[in-house]
Simulated assay, not measured.
Amino acid sequence: MGLTGKLTAQIEYKYWRRCFHEVFRYMPHEVSMSPELIQGCDLLEGDLGGVGSIIYWKYTHDGTETVAKEIVDAIAEEKEGDMMELYKKFEPTFHVDAHGDVDLVTWTFEYEKLHDDVEEPLSLLGLCINLTRHIELHHLNKKP
């Protein structure tokens, strides 16, 4: 099996699609609304939503407390942290699109494993799917 890979998942999103994007860009602290998944995030440098900003995430992955340093690049995000113990390159991205009357959140992981023994990041993709559902439910419950 190769060391490089790409995983993609699409999830239907029933709340205003811009909201999902705006939560991650301008209000990442609100992602902590799911404390069993995300325990917190701290802005280390720059402005929220700005290119060059650095955010330090604390989250639980497969029952283990994990950290990641996110550096916001022009469009994509580059991550550092616990994932770098397994992957030479790990670049998660997401976008939200309308497909007819349905909004879809698409998560994509492009990665290069350090060696063949490293598993594909399927459980981390599952965490992102769960997080998407938590954010949606949080906003649907607040809907007037």
Rank of each mutant, 00 (worst) to 15 (best):
H29C: 08
K6R: 15
V31L: 15
G46S: 09
R25W: 07
F20H: 06
G40F: 09
L43G: 00
L43A: 04
F24A: 04
M27H: 15
V23Y: 01
C41K: 02
H29I: 00
M33G: 07
G49H: 05
I38D: 00
E30C: 05
P35M: 05
G40L: 02
L7Q: 13
H29R: 12
R25C: 13
L37V: 01
E30Q: 14
F20N: 01
K14R: 13
I11P: 02
P35G: 11
Q39A: 09
A9K: 14
E36Y: 02
Y26I: 00
L43E: 01
H21V: 14
L3A: 04
H21E: 15
Y13I: 11
L48K: 13
E45A: 07
K6M: 07
E45M: 08
E22M: 11
G49F: 06
L7P: 03
L7D: 01
A9R: 15
Y26G: 00
T8A: 07
P35Q: 07
E30F: 01
F20T: 05
P28Q: 09
C19A: 12
L7M: 12
G2F: 11
H21L: 13
Y13P: 03
L43V: 08
E22R: 12
P28N: 06
F20Y: 15
G5A: 12
Q39K: 15
T8G: 00
F20P: 01
G49L: 11
T4S: 15
E22K: 10
R18K: 14
F24Q: 01
L3D: 06
Y13C: 05
H21G: 10
F20W: 01
T4K: 14
A9Q: 13
T4Q: 11
L37S: 11
V23G: 00
P35N: 11
I38N: 01
L3Y: 03
M1P: 08
H21T: 15
F24R: 02
R18N: 10
T8L: 00
E22F: 04
C41V: 15
C41F: 05
H29L: 09
